[in-house]
């Protein structure tokens, strides 16, 4: 029986990896995949906590988060494809048109 702490720690690692990916990767797709990693870290944490509390609601939440992730994938890919087809690049730095 693996303790809740271990799961949470693993999810923390996943989340950190995702965050690092977001911060360091320059390709829109890779940033996007890192975000998905972060979402899955959240899912893992939710499941672990749900088990710790003996509560099904946490697992339901995972379902919803999965749906949200899917919706995000759909829209994100649409945007990326739209840009890709115009510019043939998904590098975030190349989007020089708009500088913060």
């Amino acid at each position: 029986m693996v303790g809740t702490g271990a799961y949470v720690a693993l999810s923390g690692v996943l989340f950190a990896l995702g965050l690092i990916g977001v911060l360091t990767r320059r390709t829109a797709i890779m940033v996007f995949l890192s975000v998905e990693l972060m979402l899955n870290a959240a899912n893992l944490a939710l499941v672990a906590f749900a088990r710790a509390w003996g509560d099904l609601v946490g697992q339901t939440a995972v379902f919803i988060v999965m749906t949200l992730a899917a919706a995000e994938v759909a829209i994100g890919l649409a945007i990326i494809v739209a840009i890709f087809r115009k510019r043939e690049t998904t590098n975030v730095d190349d989007l020089a048109q708009l500088k913060g």
Partner: peptide, 16 residues
């Protein structure tokens, strides 16, 4: 989406 991901992770923790 990064913001959302962080938020969701926070929600998971709050739940925890």
């Amino acid at each position: 989406s990064v913001g959302s991901a962080i938020l969701i992770y926070g929600i998971a923790f709050l739940y925890g």
